[in-house]
Design a protein around this nucleic acid. Structure first.
Length: 225
DNA sequence: TTGTGTTTTATTGCCTCC
DNA sequence: GGAGGCAATAAAACACAA
């Protein structure tokens, strides 16, 4: 039997149990203890459908509405009030669960984005070092050749346009293609600026991600989810 | 059939609002 | 001070694997 399928509720049980809560005051518990153990029945599909439908339009219905609904479903007003209370609790916990999932997905995405940027930064730094060495040795022709070679390497590498974002202080890749070409030396300058920027970002990211992970510490119940 | 985990209904205690 | 909301919890009903 699936969750949706319920055994039919014996409604006469409830009509017999009219002593259960004459009003909606959930705390007036006279005579409840005497019969609570043999009175509990799950609501039938029709009752659940109506309650769900009402909940969709109004999660906190007024007293009169609950009373009318109870009458039409053959339930005690108190049962309807309790059902709405429990439903709100379930709904809230579902909502929290969903929010957690969304946050986790976006955190994971951010993590992989950071790893990509980190790798890209490393490769750019290596290239920068090579170029610096070459400029120390001098030789415009050599720089020119190396510059062309590096252009090709950068294109070949795992450089993904979306990873270059202004939010990280980087020019968008398409824009960078439009920058006036100032010769190999300006290329080196640009790359140096980019690399320096990325190093700063890396330092910040290392710090932030560390503190984030430290806070969560992987022992939080949320992480065991 | 039975043990175990999950869902649903109900209770209790505390809090806030009027 | 009463009414009603919420969080925590109990307990019945149910699902399901072994």
């Amino acid at each position: 039997m699936s969750v949706g399928e319920r055994l039919p509720t014996n409604s006469s049980m409830w009509s017999q149990s009219s002593l259960l809560g004459k009003d909606l005051n959930l705390h007036s518990m006279s005579s409840i203890k005497n019969c609570k153990d043999n009175m509990r029945r799950r609501f039938n599909d029709e009752q659940i459908r109506s309650l769900e439908h009402m909940f969709e339009t109004e999660a906190r219905p007024e007293l009169r509405t609950k009373q009318q609904l109870a009458k039409s479903l053959g339930l005690q007003p108190r049962q309807v009030a309790i059902w709405f209370q429990n439903k709100r609790a379930r709904s809230k916990s579902k909502q929290l669960d969903m929010e957690y999932r969304m946050l986790k997905i976006s955190y994971d995405n951010l993590g992989s984005k950071y790893e990509m940027l980190k790798k890209e930064n490393e490769s750019l730094l290596i290239q920068l070092q090579r170029l610096r060495k070459l400029t120390e040795k001098g030789g415009n022709e050599e720089i020119q050749n190396e510059g062309n070679k590096l252009d090709t390497e950068v294109i070949k590498s795992e450089f993904i346009p979306e990873t270059c974002s202004p939010e990280f202080g980087l020019p968008l890749c398409e824009d960078s293609r439009e920058i006036d070409y100032m010769g190999p030396e300006s290329d080196i300058l640009n790359m140096a600026q980019i690399a320096d920027g990325l190093s700063e970002i890396e330092n910040e990211c290392n710090f932030e991600s560390r503190t984030f992970l430290d806070d969560s510490d992987c022992r939080s119940p949320l992480w065991e989810f």
